[in-house]
């Protein structure tokens, strides 16, 4: 079967069958990246990076805590962006991407809070404190969960996408609040670990390990979000000829 040649535009990849085919190739690549980068990052984090002068060994939580917290904020912005695009241009695929980001974003937010609690106990003497950074991150978790609950509660998928988009866009005001909370308020949580304008505050090997782990989490997010979007495409386009053909071919291959 040959596809008619169409000019490559911004909307070329908004076609669900094309997206499905391309991500089918990309997902294994992102998995390989995620696993490989994690192996290198953890090896650096545990065997190359030195013991911290003030915190001892417990600081090694940073190699998952900071990447998870970064991803939680980044994914929210990406989710709100695609939700808005899906709403403004009536682009189904953009809305599906937004909705499949939500569970992964919620997961990273949970991990940031969980690892933060386990790090806070030995260093601050408490699992939790109602300081600006922690509270705004908890609100982020509720925004993700609220978005998932709202979109799942509405039966018509396009209406659900639109209602979700409104929530996602309004909620995005929380992201800069999380990021700048350590600057704007007096918080128990320490300031930004990495800054583009200031010299690094930690050993180079620690910083490198943390950045490699961030790339690993980023690759993980791509892999799992694309997998979920592919599932969503199949669910929504169930009656489309290309899905029917694909499904029957797969069934033929695996009786």
């Amino acid at each position: 079967m040959t596809q008619p040649r169409t000019p490559l535009t911004f909307f070329t990849f908004s076609s669900p069958p094309r997206f499905y085919a391309i991500t089918g190739v990309l997902v294994p690549v992102f998995w390989a990246l995620a696993v490989g980068l994690t192996a290198v990052g953890l090896w650096m984090g545990f065997f190359v990076a030195p013991t911290d002068a003030t915190q001892g060994e417990v600081y090694r939580i940073i190699f998952i805590h900071v990447p998870a917290a970064w991803m939680s904020m980044l994914l929210y912005v990406v989710m709100a962006f695609w939700a808005a695009i899906g709403w403004a241009f009536n682009a189904r695929l953009a809305s599906m991407v937004a909705r499949s980001i939500a569970p992964t974003g919620a997961l990273f937010t949970f991990l940031a809070l969980w690892t933060g609690a386990l790090w806070g106990k030995p260093t601050w003497g408490t699992w939790w404190v109602w300081d600006a950074r922690l509270t705004s991150e908890l609100i982020l978790l509720f925004l993700y969960l609220g978005y998932i609950a709202l979109t799942e509660a509405i039966d018509d998928p396009r209406r659900a996408d639109q209602a979700g988009a409104l929530l996602a866009v309004v909620g995005s005001v929380n992201v800069p609040i999380i990021y700048f909370s350590v600057k704007w308020w007096n918080t128990l949580h320490q300031g930004a670990s990495v800054s583009l304008t200031a010299a690094p505050k930690m050993a180079t090997t620690m910083l490198t390990a943390m950045l490699i782990m961030s790339l690993a989490f980023w690759a993980y997010a791509f892999a799992v979000v694309f997998t979920r979007t592919r599932a969503m495409v199949l669910e929504r386009e169930q009656s489309a000829t290309w899905v029917q053909d694909l499904a029957r071919r797969q069934q033929g291959a695996l009786p």
Binding site: R228, A231, L234, V243, Q244, Q250
Partner: peptide
């Protein structure tokens, strides 16, 4: 979820 969606599509 993706495998299930594919199975369901085959039954439609």
């Amino acid at each position: 979820r993706r495998r299930r969606a594919l199975q369901q599509a085959a039954q439609t």
